[in-house]
Design a protein around this nucleic acid. Structure first.
Length: 197
DNA sequence: CCAGTCAAGCAGTTGG
DNA sequence: CCAACTGCTTGACTGG
């Protein structure tokens, strides 16, 4: 499965699952016009680098929030697409280029990775729910079929209990219920979706 | 580095 | 129209 974190100012992952595609938000969109103000806090503080907070004497300093500019976000996204992790040199270079502290770059990448993962997990969860639904439905269908055959007095062929049979939708092999053919497949071999087959 | 969390800032909604 | 509220996004921090 290919996981290609895409661009846009928001998380956007592509998980290549049949019949289940993420809709890439149109570039920059995100609620149209969430234009960010270019606050000066975005700029690299000229003095006292990473431990600037500590320089706030006394009690808890107000945790002001940096808002990245569009350009900064775009560049970060670009480099994230190229590489999900940065070595110290890259980090430093990016920080310099974006006029941010390297710690900020580091944090941004950490968050980005975490949120990509989260998004991917959510999508997989959605997918497995659908898959479960379709398997359940298929199972019911097959049960009905067996009942019909029974009613017609045409017993299922030489298998002790037909109700324990199920059909693998992909390879179309009949297996017993306990057989591993219905086991959750590995991510790399995701199951078929409605459209497939 | 990651997972979990906090909290700022923003957009959208709602009630007066 | 506007303040209050709500929900979401995202930068930052902490502990392991």
């Amino acid at each position: 499965m290919a996981i290609l974190p895409e661009n846009s100012s928001h998380l956007d992952l592509t998980i290549s699952v049949p019949g289940f595609s993420s809709s890439p938000p149109s570039d920059e969109g995100s609620g149209g016009g969430r234009e960010q103000l270019k606050l000066d806090m975005n700029q690299l503080p000229s003095s006292s680098e990473d431990d600037e907070e500590l320089s706030h004497g006394g009690s808890a300093p107000p945790r002001k929030k940096l808002r990245l500019t569009r350009e900064q976000s775009r560049l970060l996204e670009d480099s994230f697409r190229q590489n999900h992790t940065l070595n110290p040199k890259q980090k430093e270079a990016l920080a310099k280029h974006l006029m941010l502290r390297s710690r900020q770059i580091e944090v941004w990448f950490q968050n980005r990775r975490a949120r990509s993962k989260l998004k991917q997990t959510e999508m997989e969860c959605e997918y497995f729910k659908r898959w479960f639904g379709s398997l359940t439905e298929q199972n019911h269908r097959l049960h009905r079929e067996v009942e019909e055959l029974r009613a017609m007095n045409v017993g299922p062929p030489t298998v002790t209990s037909a109700s324990s049979l199920s059909m693998c939708p992909r390879c179309e092999r009949v297996t017993t219920a306990a057989s591993p053919s219905l086991a959750i497949p590995s991510q790399k071999t995701l199951p078929p979706q409605e459209s497939e087959h």
